[in-house]
Amino acid sequence: MKICLFQDDEKIFRKSGIGRALKHQREALRLAKVDFTLDYKDEYDIIHLNTINPKSFMLAKLAKKNHKKVVFHAHSTEEDFRNSFALSNQIAPLFRKWLIKCYSTADVLLTPTPYSKTLIDKMGFKVPIIPISNGINLDDFRLNNEKKKKFQRHFKLSKQQKTIISVGHYFERKGIIDFIEIARSFPDIKFIWFGHTSSTLLTENVKKAIRNKPDNVILPGYIDGDIIQGAFQSADMFFFPSYEETEGIVVLEALASKTQVLVRDIEVYSPWLKNKINCFMGRDNNEFKKTIEDYLDGKIDSTVESGYKVAEERSIEKIGNQLKNIYQQILKNEL
């Protein structure tokens, strides 16, 4: 059994959740001892596609023509396309049609969560749709004091400085406007949002929020490696007010770092995240503010240990074995 784990436009997707999902898949297959290639010109039995660009679609069609099996990882939905960049809502119906065209080539669709499976189910596909987490490499986020120091030195932070971080594109859907607004209520806390989006794609609402952000909000752009890992381990809280996700790899990264997590109470986290058990949840800015205040004042207990167990259940090793099992079933026509 040999898998073609196709990756294209790596420079474009490297900074996105899909880029990290691809990296996780490579690591997972290595650990599960699954033979794979990144070159679609090699011999293979199954092609596993993560992106929905025209090349992925053409490779899926070519694979079917050559009697190969096609797995499409349904990372994208119309719902998480909306409220992202400028004009995303206007072109969302066309995006949905393209999704259906791409995903219809698959023998099996994979999707990151039970919630995202319900969204894909609504498109009416007749093939199996299997929820499987994007996974997390626990080793990357184990406590490392040198990484914490690198983060603190990079931002010139004292050990006493309270910090709240988030990670994502500058999309309205991600909740960056709420993040900035809430920071106004906590001038003594540094709010750091890691990520970058081209200014040409920003909505006017996001541009306005960034222009008028308070001084305690830091937007350092895209940073990876030791500094971002140190940020997760050093931060007092990971605050992710996203309105729509298919999973949220950054949430898994925070859980794996044993950082206190605060997320918006949205469907994607059901049933794997539970308020005040393995994370904190809020429905609006007032609830977010109160939770931040209560946690930093010691009025509510940390959930990091239970949160870490959620990350353990989605370790790269376990995801690799799950993928291996799915591939084997596909080749045996058992799905």
Rank of each mutant, 00 (worst) to 15 (best):
M1D: 12
I3K: 05
L5V: 04
K11P: 13
I12V: 00
R14D: 07
G17N: 13
I18G: 03
I18R: 09
G19E: 04
G19Y: 04
G19D: 04
A21I: 06
Q25S: 12
A32E: 05
V34N: 05
D39M: 06
E43S: 10
L49E: 07
T51I: 10
K55E: 12
F57N: 11
A63Y: 06
H75Q: 13
E78V: 14
F81V: 06
N89K: 11
N89T: 14
Q90E: 15
P93N: 14
L94Y: 15
K97V: 08
K101A: 02
T105G: 12
T113N: 01
P114C: 09
I120K: 09
M123H: 08
V127S: 02
V127R: 07
V127P: 00
P128I: 08
P131Q: 11
P131G: 08
P131M: 09
I132T: 12
I136H: 03
I136F: 01
N137S: 15
L138C: 13
N144R: 06
N145T: 05
E146H: 12
K148Y: 09
K148T: 04
K150S: 10
K150W: 03
Q161L: 02
K162H: 12
I164H: 04
G168F: 01
R173F: 05
I176H: 05
F179D: 00
E181L: 02
E181M: 00
S185A: 15
F186I: 09
I189Q: 03
I192V: 12
W193I: 01
S199Y: 13
N205L: 10
K207E: 05
R211M: 09
K213S: 01
V217A: 06
G230S: 04
G230L: 01
A231R: 04
Q233I: 06
A235K: 02
F240V: 02
Y243P: 06
E244R: 08
E244I: 00
T246G: 02
E253D: 03
E253K: 05
S257V: 12
V263A: 03
R264P: 04
P271G: 09
K276C: 15
I277H: 08
F280V: 02
M281E: 05
M281S: 05
E287F: 08
E287M: 10
Y295N: 08
Y295Q: 07
D297C: 09
K299G: 07
I300V: 15
S302Q: 11
T303I: 07
G307H: 10
E313N: 13
G320R: 08
L323R: 06
K324Y: 08
L331V: 03
E334H: 02
E334R: 03
